[in-house]
Simulated scan of single mutants.
Amino acid sequence: MTTPILRAADVSALHDRLLATPGWPAEEPAPADDGLWRWVQTNHRYNCRLWAEEDLARRTTVADSAIAANKRAIDGFNQARNDATERVDELLLVALGLVDAASARTDAPVSTVSAGARLNSETAGSIVDRMSIMALKIHAMRAQTLRDDVDDAHRAASRVKLERLLQQRSDLGQCLDALLADAVAGRAYFKVYRQFKMYNDARFNPELVKERSARA
């Protein structure tokens, strides 16, 4: 196999390194490659932007128009995050020889799975996406343990939660490594699951269809 398969430890290391990079996510460092790692990084970038926008959308002392702008940004970042997740899955499936490369980006990829392999309901890309979100939770909870404007009880409770989050990310990483190992061995496979987010598409969202009809 010419394309390296992801390792969970490398994914977590990238997530943490990017979160510690000054200017991230507004400023994006060059990815390790223009293929798989580019899309792992892109997924993480949009999760980070989504996280920040979700915080802003909870404000209570700004105009409603500001919150509406936050909500529109959230829709865009969420779509970009999902698109990146799908690209991770496409590239992994091609690298694993589990899908025909020419059809990988279509809505109906042609499977080349060995007989007898089990279908895993969660994709490798979705695990990477969940690990990205977990890295954000860990980063934010660690900051809570270092606050000097709260009492000891808050910091202690945050340390307990931090340890649990670290364990949860470790569990996800083990699942990713096991899935990819089984896929390499021909024991398991996954598919690209298209999200088809209809609310972002003016052709499918019934309220946007109504607006377009009214304008016509």
Rank of each mutant, 00 (worst) to 15 (best):
A57W: 07
L96I: 11
W39G: 03
L92A: 14
D171G: 02
P22A: 05
L36F: 04
K210A: 08
S114D: 11
Q168M: 14
A115F: 04
R159H: 08
E54P: 05
A185G: 13
D171H: 08
V94Q: 11
A73G: 00
V209R: 08
S126L: 12
T145M: 03
R105C: 08
L176T: 10
G173M: 08
R105Q: 11
R203K: 15
A156P: 00
N205P: 04
A108N: 14
A80Q: 12
L119W: 13
S158C: 10
I127G: 07
G76M: 05
N82F: 13
S65F: 05
A104H: 03
L91G: 04
R187Q: 14
T21W: 05
D89Y: 11
N120V: 12
R45Y: 00
A30D: 06
T112V: 05
K191L: 15
T21V: 02
A214D: 15
F204H: 06
V192E: 10
A52W: 13
T21E: 06
A108F: 12
A135S: 13
M141C: 09
Q174Y: 03
D177S: 11
R194T: 09
D151K: 04
A183C: 15
E53P: 00
E90I: 14
A102S: 15
V11T: 01
D152H: 02
Y46Q: 02
W24R: 01
G23M: 11
K71Y: 11
E28S: 08
N200H: 02
